[in-house]
Amino acid sequence: MILAEVVRSGFTECVHEGAVVVLDAAGAVVAEAGDVTGPMFPRSSNKPLQTVGMLRSGLRTADPADLALISGSHYGEPFHVARARRILETAGLTEDALRCPEALPSLESERDLVLREGGGPSRIRMNCSGKHAGMLATCVENDWPLDDYRDAKHPLQAAIAAAVTELVGEPIAATGIDGCGAPVFAFSLTALARGFQRLVAAPPTSFERLVADTMRADPELVAGTGAEDTLLMSGVPGLLAKGGAEGVQVVAIPEVGAVALKISDGAMRARMPVLVSGLRRLGVDEPVLTRLAAVPVLGGGNEVGEVRATW
């Protein structure tokens, strides 16, 4: 299903196919396109659901805001790195315990600064270091082995898988290895949307709601300065957002509904225009959505076209 097009100087240059589902406040499908019931890997959109699994397994943090970083894909800014270190230190660990790959910060300005100062890639700067720090802290609470915490058969990952299965309301179709080396679970877009609805609609004292509330309270910890998830959660009251690699995005708003989408070719630039189209079908139209409804296409440093939704 064609969801977006790239228009350059009035000419349709290419199109992006994919799938998108829109749920109302009761969880019923009100709009859809493409395959929204077949399994797909939500990639980092899994993270808030995984955090619930950690909390159910005994994860405790010194600061509730730590859960926003654990549930996020941070940009590697200094406040992200410092918080990831504190999560590890509170558990009696150092960054040497991390098993995520080494990486430079995602934010270009921070990446340039690290290189100018003679630094290089490190595990603590990798965008999943918050999640990995949370996983290690959960293992410490349970006296579980640390070296193989990423293994799908590890008690931590089994507990997380059980929580994700319950939250999305359907069996995990496949377990893969995400870019950070931890397990990633496959299920449908519709299940992903319903899982996020359960987070925002849960009772205030529940782990689900705790994850949703901390992410919405500190969206910069979930992503970073100027990031799409940060802008969405800052600009749309009550909205919970989490993007994932390969063109995945999911949002949910209590008493309004949810939208989940996947761009088939993995193009990240097509996500926001399609998401905005879905949110507007739910009657949501905050000013930030106008900003995100079209993605500029540049030529010679100037805007010569845009990516826009066709759905």
Rank of each mutant, 00 (worst) to 15 (best):
92 G>M: 01
136 L>S: 04
71 S>Q: 07
65 A>F: 02
105 P>G: 02
84 A>R: 05
59 L>T: 00
153 K>S: 13
75 Y>W: 15
107 L>D: 14
117 E>T: 02
172 I>V: 14
167 L>S: 04
97 A>T: 01
168 V>F: 13
119 G>F: 09
147 D>L: 07
144 W>V: 00
109 S>K: 07
106 S>D: 15
89 E>W: 01
170 E>V: 14
152 A>T: 04
118 G>F: 10
119 G>I: 08
108 E>V: 15
165 T>H: 08
165 T>I: 06
148 D>K: 06
105 P>N: 11
175 T>K: 08
131 K>Y: 05
120 G>C: 05
91 A>H: 08
87 I>A: 03
154 H>P: 04
157 Q>S: 01
114 V>R: 11
170 E>I: 13
82 A>K: 15
173 A>Q: 12
110 E>K: 07
177 I>R: 12
139 C>G: 02
108 E>N: 10
98 L>K: 01
75 Y>I: 10
166 E>T: 15
160 I>A: 13
88 L>E: 02
108 E>D: 15
186 A>T: 08
131 K>A: 07
83 R>G: 05
146 L>I: 09
63 D>L: 10
104 L>V: 00
183 P>G: 01
89 E>T: 04
86 R>N: 08
108 E>R: 15
152 A>V: 07
62 A>H: 09
134 G>I: 06
174 A>L: 05
123 R>T: 01
190 T>K: 11
132 H>Y: 09
170 E>N: 14
184 V>Y: 02
101 P>R: 06
71 S>C: 07
189 L>G: 10
147 D>Y: 03
64 P>G: 05
143 D>G: 12
140 V>E: 02
115 L>A: 01
69 L>G: 08
154 H>I: 03
122 S>E: 15
136 L>Q: 04
107 L>G: 00
151 D>S: 07
154 H>C: 11
122 S>K: 12
145 P>I: 02
187 F>L: 03
159 A>C: 13
177 I>P: 06
